[in-house]
Simulated scan of single mutants.
Amino acid sequence: MREIIDLSDKTITIDRNEFLKVKGSIDTNVYYVESGSLRVFVLDNYEEQTIRFGYKENLIASLDSFLTGQPSDLFIQAIKKTVIKVITKPQIDHFLKTETNRVLWTKILENLVIQQMEREIDILTNSPKERYQRVLKRSPQLFQEIPNKYIANYLRMSAETLSRLKKS
């Protein structure tokens, strides 16, 4: 992944609660989180539904917009002050001119697909306890980086339920 990160020639800082991307915009960049944390969410009947997080050493993107060049329904917002490296689509396209780099990029995309499939299973798992345990096992660092209210939203449960599960 270092090869992808090294493509970046631009670092930006976004403040807590600031948006990196809003619904309806096109964003063909990939971002590497150097510090801080972000959340990706959609609005469903004016209710925010968190679908992904990005924190230190994660790649994050509005993948639908990146791949299609079309506007996305996703919002990306800083949870706390966040420093990110920006990698543009033209930089990635140039990088993909060699077979070795295409194989690396394919592995990164495959990993993102697997993460998304795990996320879908989490959502479809009925028991809040099972959802919590799955995410804790898969991403223990999440619980150090992200405030409980966002994790609870991600897990489709109340903050109180999450708090009870963490204590048990």
Rank of each mutant, 00 (worst) to 15 (best):
M1Y: 06
L7G: 05
L7I: 04
D9S: 11
D15I: 10
D15V: 03
R16P: 06
F19I: 01
L20G: 02
L20I: 05
K21A: 02
K21H: 11
V22R: 09
K23H: 05
K23I: 03
T28Q: 14
N29F: 07
Y31L: 03
V33Y: 06
S35I: 04
S37W: 00
S37T: 01
S37R: 00
V40Q: 08
V42W: 01
L43S: 10
N45A: 13
Y46I: 07
E47G: 02
E48M: 08
Q49C: 08
Q49T: 05
I51R: 11
G54H: 01
G54Q: 03
G54W: 00
Y55G: 05
Y55A: 05
E57Q: 13
L59W: 04
I60F: 06
A61H: 05
S62K: 07
L63P: 13
T68G: 07
T68A: 09
G69E: 01
G69V: 00
I76R: 02
A78V: 06
K81M: 08
T82Y: 00
V83H: 06
I84A: 09
I84G: 00
T88D: 00
T88Q: 03
P90D: 06
P90K: 04
Q91K: 12
I92W: 04
H94Y: 14
L96A: 12
K97C: 13
T98H: 12
T100L: 10
R102M: 14
L109W: 06
N111K: 15
N111C: 07
V113H: 07
Q115V: 00
Q115G: 05
Q116T: 09
M117F: 05
M117N: 12
E120L: 15
I121A: 14
I123T: 11
L124N: 15
L124Y: 11
T125G: 11
T125D: 08
N126I: 08
N126V: 09
S127G: 09
K129C: 12
Y132G: 14
Y132D: 14
Y132S: 13
Q133P: 10
Q133W: 09
Q133A: 14
Q133M: 15
V135K: 09
V135F: 03
L136T: 04
K137M: 04
R138K: 15
Q144D: 10
I146S: 01
N148Q: 14
N148L: 07
Y150D: 08
I151F: 00
L155E: 04
M157Y: 02
M157S: 01
S158H: 07
S158N: 03
A159H: 04
A159S: 10
A159R: 13
L162C: 08
L162Q: 08
K166M: 14
